[in-house]
């Protein structure tokens, strides 16, 4: 890809006390690509993306977003810059309706008597939410029902619609298909494709290799905090990826041996 990366991470290290969770990792994400982040449990995937999304601040290293060095002190700052993160749980308030969630923390208000009295502009928020869902070809039975009545996949769609509505520049999804049934997983993959079509790059953390091969353009494998390889989907296969995930293959080691 000849264009500039939206996100680049350089020499990023994150230590928790004596434990090095992420060790000197480089990562570039370009517009409109889906990059899968793979690795065994505890490999450091979540920690790496939390350093990007403002949950953690890196022990050392640099994060550049849209050409500027960034050092977010909390997830809200990152989100205001257009980095949206989606988790399987904890991302939505289940007792609120779809619009309540899409606009949470950024509600649209109407004001009366010169701003003395303000009320929520529910109609505006509901209409925009319906549009955002429609643009992703998602259908939700009732926009007014609390989202606890929705299926896991529909909730994931609401979270994605929120990111789309607020014009996300980078979407990070940490195991978004975990705990979903098979048709729901398919739906989430379709949504990831829809994001790519809109030019929104996606970092996808997943343990599900078929998913990754179905949707990603590139994959990055981590092992014990280090990035052990980075490959185009078309240049690799599941067996090879598994070898990297368990540490049998390691490009950093190969580089040492060769050079």
């Amino acid at each position: 890809m000849e264009n500039q990366p939206i996100l680049s991470v350089r020499n990023l290290t994150k230590k928790f006390g004596g434990l090095t969770a992420v060790n000197n990792v480089d990562l570039d994400i370009y517009p409109g690509e889906v990059v899968a982040l793979l690795g065994d449990n505890g490999a450091g995937k979540s920690t790496l993306i939390k350093c990007v999304s403002g949950v953690h601040s890196p022990t050392s290293g640099r994060v550049t977003f849209q050409g500027e060095d960034v050092n977010f002190s909390n997830p809200i700052e990152a989100r205001d810059r257009g980095i949206e993160t989606i988790y399987q749980d904890l991302a939505l308030a289940n007792n609120l309706d779809v619009a309540g969630n899409i606009f949470l923390g950024r509600e649209k208000e109407k004001s009366y008597l010169g701003g003395l009295i303000r009320s929520l502009d529910d109609k505006f928020m509901r209409d925009r939410s319906a549009e955002a869902l429609e643009s992703l070809h998602v259908e939700i039975p009732s926009l007014k029902a609390p989202i606890e009545t929705l299926s896991g996949g529909q909730r994931q769609a609401v979270a994605i619609a929120r990111a789309v509505y607020w014009d996300a520049k980078l979407m990070i999804m940490d195991e978004p298909t975990n705990n979903l049934g098979v048709p729901e997983q398919k739906k989430v993959l379709e949504l990831i494709n829809a994001l790519r079509d809109r030019g929104v790059p996606v970092i996808l953390i997943s343990h599900n290799l078929p998913d990754v091969f179905a949707v990603a353009d590139r994959l990055v494998v981590m092992h014990r905090g280090q990035k052990v390889t980075e490959k185009k989907i078309s240049d690799t296969n599941s067996e090879e990826v598994v070898q990297y995930m368990v540490g049998a293959l390691d490009d950093t080691r190969k580089a040492e041996v060769v050079g």
Binding site: P75, T85, L90, N95, L96, G100, L104
Partner: peptide, 28 residues
């Protein structure tokens, strides 16, 4: 009644009760 149903104040009250972590992440 108005504050709980029709304002940000009420919306945040529900959101925090529903999922405090989500509310924090959403910038509430």
């Amino acid at each position: 009644i108005y504050a709980l149903k029709r304002t940000k104040f009420g919306r945040y009250t529900y959101a925090i009760g529903g999922n405090e972590v989500a509310a924090v992440r959403a910038g509430v």
